[in-house]
Simulated assay, not measured.
Amino acid sequence: MLRFHFSDDRREPVASAPAPDPMWEVLLSLHLLLGAAGGTAYERWRAGVYARMTPGMWALASLAPPTGYSPDFLTPYCEGDGLDRGIDALLRTPRRRVHDDLAHLIAEHGGSGVAGGLMRDGSALTGLARAVRSYYGLALAPHWDRIDAAVAVGRAPGGGGLPVAFGPHAQWRGGVLEVAYPDERDVWLRGRTLTLVPSFFCRRYPITVLDPELPPVLVYPAHVPADPPGRRDGTAARERHALARLLGHTRAQVLEGAVAGSTTGELARLLDISEPTVSVHVAVLRDTGLMTSSRNRNRVRHVATDQGRRLLGDLADDFAHILDAPPARGGPVAAGRRGAAG
């Protein structure tokens, strides 16, 4: 569970970015490119990007393993529009931060020639910035308008002042915002603004930076797709609710809430239902192979299986067509602004 601690009077503001952040989408799309998330729905996109990756792009990818830690400096917080501001902020990263982030990366994932070279030579950030720009132009720019449109519904205001895409994954508990997360983490805002950033490539659960001293940001999967081209009369909307009709609304929420792993009590609090009710749904999902449960001392943790995530993917990833559609004409488009007041 990830917990953001607000003051008792919640004087810290919450800002909602109006569009995906290009630097975060670069990082998270690399996770998708290199990992298994998204399943076969993204194979055409993966194949097209793989075929045109340059050595510089592969060097960038070596800093973005699909699981675990990726350097915070790859997703700098900056005020302003588009990719250019993000790259400028990347180039201004203090040498000490680059060194510390890369040391953490190496400690967790093992040695990396690229990481070691960046630690020894701060000027190598210039080549890394070029790789970011080139990769964005290859993998994201042709689809950016459709990516932005795909998350538009998910970033709309929902319950508790949070974007609707958060669904059961977050709740207020007094002055604490609790978010489903694979690890136990606490972030004290101490008067700082928490910025919520919608993402097309963020999968499974919201994520944040590791360093608690950096500007607080929460990047969340805005998994509410827009109707794809050629579909009419709400066909896509009906398909998005197919899982809920099949499993039942509450059971589908239980499965979704367990993607990152949750206890019975956490699911009960997230969904505002009783623990016995959660247990009944968990038993059914476990019997059908959509969920597993494991005990660690006195805690039982429920996790959606690969089959369960694929079933959720049928609900969330039916907008992979966005990456399969013909590229938008006119070249790269300007990406959105991060941190606009919400």
Rank of each mutant, 00 (worst) to 15 (best):
V151D: 01
Y136I: 02
E25G: 01
T208L: 13
D148E: 11
A156P: 06
A47Q: 14
S199V: 00
A61F: 13
S70D: 05
T292Q: 10
E43N: 13
M57E: 10
A150G: 06
G289K: 13
I322C: 05
R231F: 09
A170K: 07
D81Y: 03
R146P: 02
R97H: 09
D183M: 14
L28Q: 11
V153I: 12
V219W: 04
R204Q: 09
D9M: 08
T93A: 03
Y69L: 10
A252G: 08
I207N: 04
L285S: 10
R251H: 09
R245S: 02
H169P: 00
R10S: 04
A244T: 09
E25Q: 09
N296M: 12
G339H: 00
W24I: 01
P225Q: 04
E79V: 00
P168K: 04
G174N: 14
G80W: 03
D9F: 12
A242V: 12
T93S: 06
A131N: 11
M53F: 12
V333E: 06
A170H: 09
D121G: 05
T208E: 07
D314T: 07
W144K: 08
G116P: 02
D186T: 07
G116C: 08
L194T: 09
A41H: 15
R10F: 08
A17S: 15
P157D: 05
R130K: 09
T75K: 11
A131P: 14
E25K: 02
I273M: 08
E79P: 01
A152P: 03
R286H: 10
L162Q: 05
I147L: 14
G48H: 14
S134Y: 06
A139N: 06
T235D: 13
P163R: 03
A51T: 09
G308F: 14
E275Q: 15
H281N: 08
V219Y: 02
A320Q: 09
W24N: 01
T250L: 12
A61C: 10
P332Y: 09
D227T: 15
